[in-house]
């Protein structure tokens, strides 16, 4: 098996791909922190999928008689100002976190990839116009722009996602453009062109796949920032609306109680921290494997 994977002369493209994946995996597994990050993210996904099974209580049902209960064996992380079980709320909140980062990545990454590859491939006036737009949005502080968009669209988790996505794509466009510029004039692209392939086919079939690895690294590293931005919007009351168990909004809810009830703000904030730390660890590890040029 190992020999087949590491053969110098692979017989099929699949064998070559599998061999490279094997080497990459080996390098990745050596980075223990990156593996830890991956494990945390896998755990997050498992928790989100099985939230109804894991959470002992309903995340939004209020029990005023049981409000502000400290940590105990019945309420692992205590209850909040409405008597809701904090552990259950954090478990259900993992779904919202995944929802936000998933949708932002699905919207922003393809848009950035498309803009960057088109600008890089065609060059000239197309490149100039597209990159001007990219630079204008990049010139803005991200959170402020997202705040302005949310204020126009109205508060809510979908609008927060749209606002974050609008402010997230420009770096992806820049990366894809840079990659495109390095391969645009290579011989294999010329060969495809001589075979009669059009611009669209070359971009989607031959350029985009080569941009993917650096794009994945950048998106993973950005995930932490996306989590922090969306939690910040939630904290300001502009993201997910109560009684939604969004971690940022939960922190905001506990603000009035910090003097006597420490667990209200400590728990959701720790959840945000652990998840964004995991994405940073994974992103750093992926960068070393997939994109050695980007590391220091």
């Amino acid at each position: 098996m190992r020999e087949w994977l590491l053969a110098d002369t692979p017989e099929s493209s699949f064998q070559a791909w599998a061999g490279r994946a094997y080497l990459g995996l080996g390098a990745f597994m050596k980075n223990r922190l990156a593996v830890l990050g991956l494990l945390i993210i896998v755990a997050l996904i498992v928790i989100a999928v099985f939230a109804p099974v894991i959470a002992p209580y309903d995340p939004v049902e209020t029990r005023i008689g049981n409000r502000l209960a400290p940590l105990s064996s019945t309420h692992y992380l205590g209850t909040d100002e409405m008597g809701r079980d904090i552990f259950s709320r954090i478990v259900w909140g993992s779904r919202l976190t995944l929802y936000v980062i998933g949708l932002v990545a699905i919207i922003a990454a393809p848009v950035g990839l498309l803009v960057g590859t088109v600008a890089g491939y065609f060059g000239g006036i197309v490149d100039m116009v597209l990159m001007r737009i990219t630079d204008i949005i990049l010139a803005f502080p991200k959170l402020i722009l997202a705040l302005a968009f949310v204020s126009a669209l109205g508060p809510g988790i979908e609008n927060a996602i749209i606002a974050i996505a609008i402010t997230s794509w420009p770096p992806y466009a820049r990366i894809s453009r840079a990659e495109t510029l390095t391969i645009r004039h290579s011989d294999f692209i010329k060969a495809v062109r001589l075979q009669g392939a059009g611009g669209l086919r070359i971009i989607t079939g031959h350029i985009m796949p080569l941009c993917l690895s650096s794009l994945i690294v950048r998106v993973t590293l950005d995930m932490a920032g996306i989590i922090l931005t969306s939690a910040g919007l939630g904290f300001l009351g502009l993201g997910a609306q109560p009684p939604c168990p969004e971690w940022g909004a939960m922190t905001a809810g506990g603000r009035a109680y910090i003097i006597d009830y420490w667990w209200l703000i400590t728990m959701p904030g720790t959840a945000i921290f652990i998840v964004s730390l995991a994405f940073n660890l994974l992103g750093d590890g992926l960068r070393e494997v997939l994109d050695p040029r980007g590391g220091n």
Partner: peptide, 22 residues
Amino acid sequence: GLFGYSLPIFWLGLMGLMFFYA
């Protein structure tokens, strides 16, 4: 550095208030 990129600033602020003030 890693913590600086991962800690929510509003939360760290609240925790600071909780410890050093409350």
